[in-house]
């Protein structure tokens, strides 16, 4: 696990998601540490309305992917089957990310395309940027 300097001036809610992605979930931090090769790498992006988490899962079919949200923890598990000659091997890959407040948990969706899994996490209304009219 990496240690990152705590810098309150730049720390927003979402930053803390990544600075301390495993807060309240220490066992996962050990299981899915950086050194583990079974950890799925992730890109996290956002636009005005959503957060997006993307994972590379080449060779994994929809039915071998599991996306779960439990207690603000988003867990992605993938079963990767690899055939070499007559033998088939199965690898398990996974990643757990803690989701910040202000995500509509019941509206999370996931899409698999060309071996890229995109999980869309819609922001709750009160978290979207708002322009306030000056009266």
């Amino acid at each position: 696990m990496k240690l990152t300097r705590y810098n309150p001036s730049t720390l927003t809610d979402f930053d803390s998601w990544f600075r301390q992605p495993f807060v309240g979930f220490p066992s996962a931090a050990q299981v899915f540490s950086d050194s583990g090769s079974n950890r799925l790498a992730a890109d996290i992006q956002e636009d005005k309305d959503n957060y997006f988490a993307q994972f590379e899962v080449p060779g994994v079919k929809k039915e071998d992917l599991k996306v779960e949200l439990n207690n603000q923890i988003l867990t992605i598990s993938a079963e990767k089957k690899q055939t070499a000659g007559d033998t088939e091997q199965t690898y398990s890959l996974s990643r757990a990310i803690s989701v910040p407040d202000g995500v509509q948990g019941d509206a999370i969706s996931a899409k698999l395309e060309n071996g890229i899994l995109t999980v869309t996490l819609p922001k709750a209304e009160h978290r979207k940027p708002k322009t306030i009219e000056i009266a």
Partner: peptide, 18 residues
């Protein structure tokens, strides 16, 4: 690759090389 992210997405955290 086809870009998997739209151009107006803001990157918060990057691990994939893309």
């Amino acid at each position: 690759r086809t870009p998997s992210a739209l151009s107006d997405w803001k990157t918060l955290h990057r691990e994939l090389k893309g």
